[in-house]
């Protein structure tokens, strides 16, 4: 009986000590598992190096000397920093640009593009463009390059410059999965 008491006391003590040490490690910014065990330390400050939202924005619209700057400019600051150079780039790519299939003139279109965020609907269809919905997300199968080519070169009806509005690569080289993790296994 006495030995049981000692055992219980020892157990309680060890639980108590364990809890103390757990608090200590939390103070040092350890993550803990659902069971309360410390896993790894995640201290430190991480600094921005690369970013993206919509596909091919930096590569197509940002001039070669400014690509690193674009990657480290916060989205909220991108519009004022890059809209005018995006507009110049658009008109260099397509000197005949008037409006596009979304009805956006050069200034309006590049104002949208320069703040590089991807809008995603939480209420239904998510797609870059599916013939009906525009910019409500981006799925793996969306032919985003054709959409962007059409908006840059296709004019108000999408009929201008037909040789430049479709790269004739319409799908991935491996089928995607219907379930998580969705991407195809590596080659």
């Amino acid at each position: 009986m006495k030995s049981i008491k000692i055992l219980l006391t020892a157990t309680c003590l060890s639980v108590f000590l364990f809890n103390c040490s757990e608090d200590d490690v939390n103070d040092r910014n350890f993550a803990t598992s659902p069971e309360g065990e410390p896993i790894e330390q995640f201290d430190g400050t991480y600094t921005l190096e690369d970013q993206m939202a919509r596909p091919a924005i930096n590569t197509v619209f940002v001039n070669s000397g400014s690509k690193d700057t674009f990657n480290t400019t916060l989205p909220a600051d991108m519009g004022s920093a890059f809209q005018s150079s995006f507009e110049a780039k658009l008109l260099a790519l397509n000197p005949g640009y008037t409006t596009n299939a979304l009805g956006l003139d050069a200034a309006t279109f590049t104002t949208v593009l320069a703040t590089d965020v991807l809008t995603v609907s939480l209420d239904g269809t998510t797609t870059f463009f599916d013939g009906t919905n525009v910019l409500t997300g981006r799925t793996l199968a969306d032919d985003v390059i054709n959409v962007e080519l059409l908006l840059i070169f296709g004019g108000p009806m999408g009929a201008d410059n037909p040789g430049l509005t479709n790269d004739n690569v319409d799908a991935n080289d491996k089928p995607f999965l219907n379930s998580f993790p969705y991407l195809a296994s590596p080659w």
Partner: peptide
Amino acid sequence: GSINTWVESKR
């Protein structure tokens, strides 16, 4: 509703 999203790499 909608969210805006972007991805960053930070070192």
